Amino acid sequence: MARPKNIVVTGANRGIGLELVKQLITKFNPDNIFATYRDPENSKDLLQLASQNGNLHAVILDVRDTDKYADFVTNVESTTQGAGINLLINNSGFFNKENNTSLSQLDKADLMYHFEINTLAPMMLTKAFLPLLEKGSKANGSQPLGIGRAAVLQVSTNMGSIGDNTSGGAYGYRISKTALNQASKNMSLDLLPKGILVIPLHPGWVKTDMGGSNALITTEECVTGILSVLENLNEDTNGHFMRFDGKEALW
């Protein structure tokens, strides 16, 4: 089984992000997991988990604050002692259900906020961690391409699918995630020669604060599927828009 030794997960204080951290620890027992959060008051479960696991490092980071990325990368590089990282999970996301639901409600500031978190942050954080992803891939060059070397998972959504959009609305969320999908496809082509794989992934309709109580699956079911997809990630699936259940989603 491919084992990522050093992992970075954003938006890890609740929902899918927190469950990712829990299952990553159990399944892979990595050397280090760096899990970001914004507000200590809303991150007590993550902070408690970090107090119980020496390999889990909870890091305060607002993904919109790109000026803090360099310090974050330096911290990770120091802790991993130059080993690089093997898996970057850009999980942070934003969906304002109150605005941008229809064309008449469009608000420029709200649209830009969606793009900052859902599109620009994953792109810029991947750029910031690129040197460490390259180090991770080179240090594990005997491993097949995948999470045992270096990979980036972009948590996207089926609501970003053009081919599967039959209901409209949710402009800010939809278009920012569609842009993330294109950026992820671009990255998958540009970074493959460096031994780094990239996929966008639809996590399903999950029972979280964002997904709501009517959602179809639990965070446990979602993350179990995501980790299975990551375990099987290879050059053939690189750049594909995947679902948590291992099937491909429509672009």
Rank of each mutant, 00 (worst) to 15 (best):
A35C: 10
L18K: 00
Q23C: 06
K22L: 11
I25N: 14
F28N: 14
D45S: 14
G17F: 08
G17L: 05
N29E: 13
T26G: 14
V21F: 11
E19V: 01
K27M: 05
A35W: 04
N53I: 00
L46Y: 05
I16T: 08
D39N: 15
N53A: 04
Q23H: 10
G17W: 02
R14T: 13
D31H: 12
L18C: 06
A12H: 07
A12I: 02
N32P: 00
L47M: 13
V21A: 12
N42E: 13
V21E: 09
A50D: 05
A50C: 08
F34V: 03
A35G: 10
D45V: 00
A35T: 05
L18S: 04
G11F: 09
G11M: 06
N29R: 12
D45Y: 05
S43V: 01
N13I: 00
G54Y: 09
S43E: 02
A12D: 06
D45W: 02
D45K: 15
D39G: 08
D39I: 01
N13Y: 02
T26F: 09
A35L: 05
P40M: 01
D31R: 10
N42V: 03
L24W: 06
L46P: 10
L20K: 06
Q23Y: 08
G11H: 04
E41Y: 14
T36N: 09
K44T: 14
R14G: 12
K44C: 00
N29I: 03
K44Y: 03
L24A: 11
L24S: 11
A35H: 05
D45L: 07
N53P: 13
F34K: 01
A12C: 11
F28V: 03
L18Q: 01
A50R: 03
N32V: 04
T26R: 10
Y37R: 01
G17K: 01
R38W: 03
K22E: 14
Q52K: 13
I25P: 03
I33H: 10
I16L: 09
G17Q: 02
E19M: 09
G54S: 15
N32E: 12
A35I: 04
I33A: 12
L20R: 05
E19Q: 15
K27E: 14
N13C: 07
F28L: 06
Q23E: 13
S51L: 00
L47P: 12
E41K: 14
L47W: 13
N13D: 06
A12N: 06
L20G: 06
N42G: 14
D31T: 13
G54N: 15
T36F: 13
D39M: 01
T26Y: 06
E19T: 13
